[in-house]
Computed example of a mutant assay.
Amino acid sequence: MIKTMNKYRNIFFFMIDFFLILLIGIFYYLSLPFKSESVVYIPSGSISQIIQNLDNNNYKMSKIDKYILYFLGYPQSGWINIGQTPLNRVEFLHKLTTAKAAEQSIILIPGETTAYFLKQVAKDLNLSEEKLLLEYSKQAKFSEGMLYPETYSIPKGIKEDLLIKLLLAHSFEQSKKAAIKIFGEYNEKKWHQFVITASVIQKEAANNEEMPIVASVIYNRLKIGMKLQMDGTLNYGLYSHTKITPERIRNDESSYNTYKFAGLPAEAVCNVSLNAIKAAIFPAKTEYLYFMRDKKTGLHIFTTNVDDHNKAVAAQRGL
């Protein structure tokens, strides 16, 4: 009897020791310094999915974190303001359930260049323009046309690298979604070639309705080896809103100068709308080779030959 009691007592104390060691281990684990961005994006989903998403984004999470979150409460979805102060793991987990980041809207309009857009974003969000451009060059696969035009809700306090990551990730998903809907698959190089054409359309067309017609002019000229000779292609980079002059046309030696060089520019001119991309993929069937803006309507007068084009130009100039 006494031996049996001693046996159970030993087991009891062993279990107590085991749980004490386990608790000490957990407390130690939760007290370790935890490195985090100042703001963190939490997608909607179960706690297990959230932990997995954080782990996929280099936040080295474990099952312990999942169970601690069950205890602390359900994490809020969206942007979480973690702050700049050094914190430990349990403080990080606690902030996921309590903090929320203040957001600010930034707008990328169709036809705007990345350089000009990031210049404005740097002012609006009090960020470094130089760092934004550097991060874009590091993270983006192409120098232009990688961003999806729309209104973005951005958390205040976000850093340059995370902002670029956010913009590119969202834009990638939108492009992939559109490509799969149109082609049944997403081929990044093929899609970007359409983006290059779409960027010229975006700069030249007066509205969405004109886009397929402008696309037909581009393809008709390319087909016969005729230079595009379009002002809009020279509104690249920080020249986005610069008036094109004869001097610019004479001196610009980039591939964007379609007065000097045949074919499309080597890279997109700007960021484009889905309407412009659809126009590049599905151009109108016309024989137009020229167009001239009508000063009264703001729309374009399309013509098939140089004589009719010259007449349209003369009419607009009052000759």
Rank of each mutant, 00 (worst) to 15 (best):
S77P: 06
V272G: 07
Q193I: 01
G225P: 05
L168M: 05
G318D: 12
K141Q: 06
T297Y: 01
E135V: 01
L87M: 15
M146I: 10
E130A: 12
D308L: 06
L23S: 13
E144G: 02
F18V: 01
S128E: 00
I47K: 09
A198H: 10
L228K: 01
F261Y: 15
P86T: 09
S255E: 05
G237E: 10
P283H: 00
W191N: 01
F282V: 15
A280V: 09
G232A: 02
A280Q: 06
S36W: 08
N310K: 02
E160P: 12
S171P: 04
K296T: 15
G157M: 13
S175I: 00
L87F: 06
T245A: 10
G225F: 11
L167A: 01
H309E: 06
K119N: 13
V272H: 04
L32C: 00
F71E: 12
K35Y: 01
Q104L: 14
A179I: 00
P246Y: 00
S128L: 00
M230W: 07
S44Q: 10
S254K: 07
K260R: 15
I47A: 07
Y8C: 04
S255C: 09
K311C: 05
Y186F: 15
F19D: 00
Y59K: 07
N208L: 08
S46W: 10
P155M: 00
T245L: 09
Y136D: 07
S105T: 14
N235R: 11
F34N: 03
N310L: 04
K156F: 10
I182F: 03
S273H: 14
A284I: 05
Y70V: 07
D307Q: 08
I201C: 12
L132Y: 07
G318L: 14
L72V: 09
K295E: 04
I47H: 07
V195T: 03
M15W: 11
M146T: 10
K227R: 15
Y41A: 04
S44H: 07
Q49A: 15
A262Q: 12
A315W: 02
L133W: 07
I64K: 04
S36M: 04
I51V: 13
L108Q: 05
A169N: 14
F13P: 02
F117P: 02
V90D: 13
E130R: 14
A122L: 06
Q52D: 14
Q120E: 14
D252H: 10
K63I: 13
I196R: 10
K63P: 09
L32E: 00
L133H: 08
W191R: 04
V214F: 03
A315N: 03
H241A: 15
K159V: 11
T85D: 13
L238G: 01
V306W: 01
L54Q: 15
N305I: 06
G111Y: 08
L32I: 02
